[in-house]
Design a protein around this nucleic acid. Sequence first.
RNA 1: GGAGGGAUGGGUGAGCGGUUGAAACCGGCGGUCUUGAAAACCGUUGUACUCGAAAGGGUACCGGGGGUUCGAAUCCCUCUCCCUCCGCCA
Length: 442
Amino acid sequence: MLDLNFVRGNLGKVEEKLRARGADPEALLGNFHSLDQRRREAITQAEQLKARRNELSQQVGALKKAGKNDEAAAVMDETRALKDKLDELDTAATALDEELRQSLARVPNLTRDEVPAGTSEADNVVIKTWGTKRNFDFEPKPHWEIGEGLGILDLERAAKLSGARFAVYMGAGARLERALISFMLDMHTQQHGYTEVLPPFMVNSKSLYGTGQLPKFADDLFRCSDADAESAAAGAYKDNDHWLIPTAEVPVTNLYRDEILEEARLPICLTAYTPCFRAEAGAAGKDTRGIIRQHQFQKVELVKFTKPEDSDAEHEKLTRNAEEILEALEFPYRRMLLCTGDTGFSSAKTFDLEVWLPGQQVYREISSCSNFESFQARRANIRFKPGGLKAKNEFVHTLNGSGLAVGRTWLAILENYQQADGSVRIPEALKPYMGGLEAISK
RNA sequence: GGAGGGAUGGGUGAGCGGUUGAAACCGGCGGUCUUGAAAACCGUUGUACUCGAAAGGGUACCGGGGGUUCGAAUCCCUCUCCCUCCGCCA
């Protein structure tokens, strides 16, 4: 959420930044000025009447104490007469306030000035490229052919169990997924200084609001049937409903919702393995082969809470921490700076890491590392207490990134480490996690 | 699932219809003392919105929502969460 005062004072800039994203400022904020104006007038009117009521009520107390019951009764009558008008003004003020809040909740974060202008992923900018693409003396296959050939990936039976966009991993394939999770968590906890978290895989609406998935992106999520569908459809979510998490970002960032952190504790660096559940609404027909795009996938996530002035440096570090996994596994990859049109709703600046997939001859996103600045912190009310004379609590900056998407790492291993005979070599760094296994073969 | 008890500021915890935005203690910040520190003492210390050029006002907030009342942290209803006991259970 953007700061109301900032929007009010910088409406032109906000509109410009929204246009840069390809959003329509008219649709999002069209009547902001007049709405804000009407809201403030309504609040002022209601508050003036409340002040009057409070003043009279105090008089009643004083008169009664003094034994002047007749006079008290007269004042009580006068106050009672205020009631209808007060209800009316209060209702109007509350409605306008709510309207403003809801419209603000749907406004995306403003992208940083260094984010390149653009309308789609085609406009993302390559920041760097790492590694050398392997030369194959045979035609490299896509991962679904390799995985099914080795009997470690079973998409047909997954479809029987759950439908399209699910996978079953078998034997060394299942172990490879588990090995990757342990490898990534170990590296982040032992070498990069993160603390491991195992959060719930279901969260309530409030948490999803805090990180920005709600209210705008409900269609992308799986909602559990204990939710009150009727009120949810109306945009009014209950406190005790449950949704499957689309990423560990949601539970981990919300860990400190409505809390005030000690400055000395910052930055807080957390890493979490979780499955992620995404409805992939609107992705029909996209990436239907293989396991690139799934309703359930596993991911190791990195999350940071920082002081505002540190978030840029921590963003770079976090992105490096994800890159180091790719480098340890010796994958050719590149780092992209997402353009304004491709940067996510809550993010001010995002780097995507794309891994080379020789079976498909493309770079594919395997990590997305974002600086949300105070956008999520404001929604989730996560503050810190600055030391010294700066007494006022401030919103932290939140950041997160995949470190990495495990399913996509799994398929990247198949495609990059495949052999002519259909077997797959195990990357050096992963061998200890695979019980010393050299290769997966039939 | 059943029966009880709770939820108050950064923390612990009083208040149970009218100068209570909220005692006290702890913590934080500033100061006195000290070569420095500690101790002791003194002062200070919530958030959001809103009016105002400012000084300074106003409103709301004691888990959430609703109600009673001239007036609610305090009474009533309801929801959520936590604790204790019983039952069930990976």
